[in-house]
């Protein structure tokens, strides 16, 4: 007997299951391949890459908060050439889809990185990070104004050799407006939510805990915000939505799918349990069997 169908299609790309890693929490998969078979993931979404190596922020870069964590890594990465030579080479024989996250400080940065990755066979999709709250120039500045978001999306999509996902920031007043701007700019899909900007103060030392002062909040604490925003975004656009934010188990993932997400990503939960994404995949399968549902696709946006 065949089990339920977990496959989904996003912008013409077929995924064995809807569960991915959230950019920045999983490197390029190498470290976690020592814990479980990363080929079982629906997709690996890599940590953001830029045209040249980025150093990131001073330490402390991370802090724990109630049911979550703050990070201000600042997108440290080896640059796109090393990424292609080493990270993509590592992913060559991993049997899953690869979505490369791209970051930049200027429009030109994004364009040259997107162009460089467009010819790489191993890259299935590009996710554009216009929503990182931890770098001073660029990044989130492109993701908080609908006009600016439209422009950069438009310019990227004109040259991208791969389907483009625009990753949206939750640090906006109207997420539906941002989703529509990305769609109008030609995005093939959107993903949300990136982290919520937060701050933690050490009361005894009377200092900021993070060297960067502010950081991005992730973890179970932000999950209800993610569900709400995925719901609003999914109702504002026709392009597929990938949902993320505080997913720690299949229930959390199913909430996002029911709210309208075609795919879901597991982020900082991996730090708590390395194989969380596998638990989520198995849990979604069990749910489908328990409810006699043939395909996970029947659940996408089913609560409306």
């Amino acid at each position: 007997m065949n089990g339920p169908d977990l496959s989904v299609e996003i912008a013409g790309v077929r995924f064995e299951n809807p569960v991915m890693t959230a950019s920045g929490t999983f490197g390029s998969g190498r470290e976690y391949s020592e814990f479980f078979d990363i080929g079982r993931l629906g997709a690996i979404v890599t940590k953001g890459v830029s045209t040249v190596p980025w150093e990131g922020n001073p330490v402390p870069r991370v802090a724990e908060t109630p049911s979550g964590m703050l990070n201000a890594i600042g997108l440290q990465n080896p640059g796109v050439e090393t990424f292609i030579r080493e990270d993509l080479a590592f992913l060559k024989d991993v049997g899953t889809k690869v979505i490369v996250n791209v970051c930049g400080k200027s429009t030109e940065d994004y364009l040259s990185c997107v162009e460089r990755l467009g010819s790489e066979e191993r890259v299935d999709m590009l996710e554009i990070n216009v929503s990182c709250p931890n770098v001073k120039e660029g990044a989130i500045a492109f993701g908080q104004d609908p006009k600016v978001l439209f422009d950069i999306t438009d310019r990227i999509c004109r040259i991208a050799g791969k389907p483009v996902i625009m990753k949206l920031s939750p640090n906006v007043t109207d997420i539906a407006e941002m989703a529509r701007a990305a769609e109008a700019g030609g995005a093939d899909a959107i993903s949300l939510i990136n982290t919520l900007t937060g701050m933690k103060i050490d009361v005894e030392k009377r200092t900021f805990v993070l060297a960067n002062r502010t950081g991005g909040l992730s973890g179970p604490a932000i999950h209800p915000v993610a569900v709400r925003m995925v719901y609003q975004a999914a109702h504002a656009v026709r392009i597929p939505v990938i949902g993320m934010g505080g997913v720690a188990d299949a229930q959390d993932a199913l909430e996002l799918i029911l709210a309208g997400a075609s795919g879901v990503a597991v982020g900082s939960a991996v730090f708590n349990r390395p194989d969380t994404a596998i638990q989520v995949i198995d849990g979604i399968r069990d749910y489908l069997i328990r409810h006699g549902i043939g395909s996970v696709r029947e659940l996408i946006g089913a609560v409306c």
């Binding site: 929490t25 990131g56 330490v59 402390p60 870069r61 802090a63 990070n71 890594i73 730090f271």
Partner: peptide
């Protein structure tokens, strides 16, 4: 010693 998140080299939280 540094504040860590993943502990396995993936997140780049604890650099020196």
């Amino acid at each position: 010693e540094e504040r860590m998140a993943c502990g396995v080299g993936a997140c780049l939280g604890c650099v020196c």
